[in-house]
């Protein structure tokens, strides 16, 4: 590759990193177990970005952000698979009733992040993909190589788990007050 194009590519790459690295790091924090893994994910993701930068056309910010988010999510799931942290049983027997409403709760960003990160790996992945990223169960099933029913089951479990945690948090807060 001629030097001028290489230099141009390097500049584009650095610009992308400076703008999006932090947000992508936070995104990966929601998926992986700890901050070291999140840094590893960001590093891997940007290496991939550098490799595919020639093919990518920056049409608008939204598209760029979506492309980068997708890469980070994929790398996060890949790392979880490598670490064998995702153990999604094809379990569809979860029938516990779930009420999607919570008592008047005011959770901060940090609390939300902490609650999500405390979820078991499988629940966390499905909850993030479905609730926050907005993927359908069909897409999640393909991404995690599970059935759609299993994805639904994991989501229900994740919600129940979070609700329980939030209730406990509210109780603790009230006790402190």
């Amino acid at each position: 590759m001629p030097y001028i194009f290489k230099r141009n590519k390097q500049k584009r790459f650095e610009a992308l990193y400076r703008i999006y690295a932090k947000n992508l790091y936070v995104l990966s924090l929601r998926y992986v177990a700890n901050s070291f893994d999140a840094e590893e994910v960001v590093q891997r993701a940007f290496i991939k970005v550098f490799e595919k930068l020639d093919a990518f056309k920056e049409e608008n910010e939204q598209a760029t952000k979506g492309w980068l988010n997708r890469i980070v999510i994929n790398e996060s799931l890949l790392l979880l698979r490598e670490q064998k942290r995702i153990q999604l049983n094809d379990d569809t027997t979860f029938n516990e009733p779930f009420t999607d409403s919570l008592p008047d709760t005011d959770l901060s960003y940090k609390e939300c992040l902490s609650l999500v990160r405390n979820l078991p790996d499988g629940y966390r992945a499905v909850f993030n993909l479905y609730v926050i990223e907005g993927y359908s169960h069909k897409e999640i099933a393909v991404m995690l190589d599970i059935s759609e029913a299993s994805s639904r089951s994991q989501l229900t479990r994740a919600r129940a788990y979070l609700q329980k945690q939030i209730k406990q948090l509210n109780y603790e807060t009230e006790v402190i007050r």
């Binding site: 947000n23 992040l113 926050i132």
Partner: peptide, 19 residues
């Protein structure tokens, strides 16, 4: 009351303000 999904989506969704 806010739904659980909405709470998390608002806080952790696109462009979290407190990164």
């Amino acid at each position: 009351p806010k739904s659980l999904d909405n709470i998390f989506k608002e806080q952790l969704g696109n462009d979290p303000k407190q990164v």
